[in-house]
Computed example of a mutant assay.
Amino acid sequence: MNKKRLGLYALLISMMSAMFLFFNVKTVNAMPVNDYIISNKIQPAAIQNREGTFNDWTPYENGVGKPEGIVIHETADNRASAEAEYTFFNNNWNTVQTYVHAVADDTEIINMHNTDYGVWGAGPTANAKFIQIELCRTHTGDAFARSIANDAFYAASKLIQYNLPDTPGVTVMSHHQTSIKWGETTHVDPDTYFPMWGYSMNEMNDMIGYYYNNLKNTGSVYGGNGTNSPSNTPATNNANTINVANSKGNFVPLVTFDSQGNAKNVPNRALANHSAWYTDMTKDANGVTYHRVSTNEWVSSAYIY
């Protein structure tokens, strides 16, 4: 077969693949993606807090705990799940020089860096302003809808957590929009991925707004008929999740252990009251059981409820 025919054959295969993706979502959903999510009352996953290895604790431009909105990313990787992205970021951030606050796919939302501090995901200006979440690619219409529900729920929850308005293009931006506005990156996500599923950033804004209004007015994603609530309500869907609160203070203190096994208070970081955290290890010291919530940061069982 000559080169022209090979090229034409490759083009046809590419077009057929794109058509398959487009019609697959329509076949599975038989309606626009947002309508599918709402009519089926798809429940977003609970937000898991698993502090990763990223050790840059830079405040936002307005101070610690003062983000101005959220940036929506997508991975551009057809094979990566939220778990895979979590592992990749935490193993490679110091070499690839990028990190986000959270990753989401169709089954999980993993918050891997405290959203009171900035990350490295969209250029210096956006990094100093925004919480950032990475959306993983999926392969069926139903899975895509569930991933959108998770992404939108996270965004809406964080806007509410920080008492921010839901304003598309201002407090909610795509990575593409930050590239256009500040010119510090050339990324165009998620605008090259969404059309594969007949979707758009405008529709993502609509889904975020739907959840935002319901969560703010009723405390649930479906106006009192759903079970999810904002991210500062503890998640309890994981056997390794602990819910923490300090009845005598505004935050939950953390400790670290030195090489001799002595516990020392962490001076400049803590956990929010009534927050949920992933833990993978316990340690006993001086009659107290501690649960690990990051590489060498632990919380006393006295604060677990």
Rank of each mutant, 00 (worst) to 15 (best):
N24H: 07
K66L: 08
A30W: 12
S39V: 08
M15L: 14
P165F: 09
V252S: 07
G69H: 08
G52W: 05
N232P: 06
S200K: 09
H139P: 02
Q48G: 04
G223I: 05
F88T: 01
N55D: 15
A149N: 00
P190S: 00
E108C: 01
A104S: 12
T125N: 05
V100I: 13
G223R: 00
T125S: 04
V188K: 14
T171R: 00
T178C: 01
T95A: 13
M207N: 07
E85C: 14
W182G: 07
S179W: 06
F257T: 04
Q260T: 12
V64W: 04
W298P: 02
S301W: 04
T171E: 06
T140L: 06
L254A: 09
N90P: 06
W197M: 08
T115C: 02
Y36C: 08
Y212E: 03
T95Q: 12
N127C: 03
D206G: 07
M112F: 13
H187E: 07
D35F: 02
A30C: 03
T227Q: 11
P190H: 07
S231K: 00
S301K: 11
M112G: 00
V33A: 00
I148A: 03
Q48A: 11
V293K: 06
G52A: 10
T233S: 10
T171N: 05
A84S: 13
